[in-house]
Amino acid sequence: MISTLKGNIALLDFDLIVDPTNQQVLPMQGVSAQIFHQAGSEMMKACQELNGLEVGKAKMTKAFNLPCKAVIHTCGPRYMDGTHNE
Rank of each mutant, 00 (worst) to 15 (best):
Q23E: 12
A39R: 11
G76N: 06
S3T: 11
N8R: 14
A39F: 08
T21F: 04
E54I: 07
A33H: 15
H37S: 12
E86C: 14
D15T: 05
H73R: 01
F36L: 09
A58P: 02
N22A: 08
S41G: 04
H84T: 14
M28T: 02
C68K: 07
L16F: 02
T21M: 02
T61C: 02
G56K: 05
M28D: 06
K45G: 08
L53M: 07
K59T: 01
L50M: 12
T4P: 01
V71M: 04
K62F: 12
D13M: 04
Q34V: 02
L26A: 02
A46L: 09
M60L: 08
Q48I: 10
N51G: 13
M28E: 01
Q38Y: 08
T61P: 01
L12D: 04
N8G: 06
V31S: 01
K69I: 13
H84Y: 15
H37I: 03
V25P: 00
S41H: 09
C75M: 01
A70Q: 14
H73K: 04
A46W: 07
P27M: 15
F64G: 03
I35K: 02
H37F: 06
N22L: 11
M1R: 14
P20W: 00
A70N: 08
S3N: 07
P67Q: 09
V25G: 00
Q23V: 09
L5I: 15
A63Y: 09
V18I: 14
K45V: 13
E49W: 04
T4M: 14
I35T: 00
S32G: 09
A70T: 05
M43K: 06
L66P: 08
K6D: 12
Q29C: 05
C68D: 03
V18D: 01
P77Y: 15
T83D: 10
C75K: 02
V71K: 00
E49Q: 14
M43G: 01
T83P: 01
K62G: 02
L66V: 12
M43F: 08
F36G: 05
N22Q: 12
Y79D: 00
I17W: 09
V71F: 03
T74G: 04
